[in-house]
Amino acid sequence: MIAAGDCVLILLAAGRSRRMGDVGSKLDEPFLGRPLGLHVAVALEDMPFMERVAVVGQANCDYAAHGYTLVHNDDPQLGMGRSVALGVDCARARGAKAVVVALADMPRVTATHIYTLLDAAEGEDAVVASSDGRSPKPPAVFGRARFDALLQLEGDAGGRDMVRAGKHVVTNPAELIDVDTPEELERLRQLVNAPEAYTRRRQI
């Protein structure tokens, strides 16, 4: 078990939204009355992390208002690996025992699940990822012995090989939905009866 108070939360929010079309940043799209990219920030705001770091790009989400230190990724074309490395660099400077890496485009993640990941993490070598029962994915916990490897990440792999070889904690697949396309966002809105789904249908 690794305590939340010994961890830095790294929220990756610098994606290029290439598959969303001409919307600017998908994280600014409305979902259940707030920007899509703020949901996980709000869901985890009561967890006692030693620090929260949001690695940001073009989105307008106000992460600072939710207690996040902002780190700007000026080279988002370098992929997710660059964002992870920026966040881990901050965590290492703080002396964190571990990092929790979460994605801002996964709006259904809960604090309960993050605590379960931390409970399953053992020691400095820990790698604990989420799973929908088929494949591992974020959010994930990495012990500090993994920081050097995370700092060397390149492209969009984001530590995929490390995650596959780690421990996996299965949760409800609905909690791990991520949003990459307009169709996925609309399906999610309909799944949870979001008012934006009905507004969209009336406009069509």
Rank of each mutant, 00 (worst) to 15 (best):
L188V: 09
A157T: 10
V170L: 10
G155N: 06
V169N: 02
N172E: 15
G159K: 00
E175F: 14
L185D: 00
R164D: 15
I177C: 07
L185G: 07
D178H: 14
P173K: 00
R164K: 14
I177N: 05
I177E: 04
G158W: 01
D180C: 12
G158A: 09
E175L: 14
A174D: 15
G166D: 01
E184P: 03
G166S: 04
V169K: 01
A174N: 14
P182N: 00
G159W: 02
V169S: 04
E175W: 13
D161N: 10
G166L: 04
E183D: 15
E184G: 05
A174H: 15
L188Y: 01
P173V: 05
T181F: 03
G158L: 01
D161Q: 11
V179Y: 02
L185Y: 01
E183R: 10
E154V: 12
T171H: 05
V170N: 10
D156H: 07
D180R: 11
E186D: 15
A157Y: 10
K167M: 12
D156G: 08
V163Q: 05
G155L: 08
A157R: 13
D156F: 05
V169H: 00
G158C: 10
L188S: 04
G166P: 13
E175G: 10
E154I: 13
E186G: 03
G159P: 12
I177R: 07
T181K: 03
L188W: 03
E154D: 15
P182S: 06
L176E: 05
P182E: 00
E183N: 12
V179C: 05
D178W: 15
R187S: 10
N172Y: 14
E154K: 11
R160K: 12
V163T: 08
M162Q: 07
E183Y: 11
G159S: 05
V163K: 03
G158H: 04
R164H: 07
G166W: 02
V169I: 15
I177Q: 03
G159C: 09
V163M: 11
V179K: 00
A157L: 14
D156A: 05
E183F: 06
R160I: 09
P173M: 00
V179F: 00
A157M: 13
D180E: 15
P182G: 00
L176Y: 09
V170Y: 01
A165V: 07
L185I: 12
D180S: 14
G158R: 00
A165H: 08
H168N: 02
A157V: 12
V169Y: 05
N172W: 10
T181D: 06
V170S: 09
R187E: 15
A157P: 08
L185H: 01
E186T: 14
K167L: 10
V170C: 10
V163P: 08
N172M: 12
E175R: 09
E154N: 11
M162C: 10
E186Y: 12
M162G: 11
M162L: 15
D180F: 14
A174K: 11
T171E: 03
E154M: 12
V163N: 05
P173C: 02
D180Q: 11
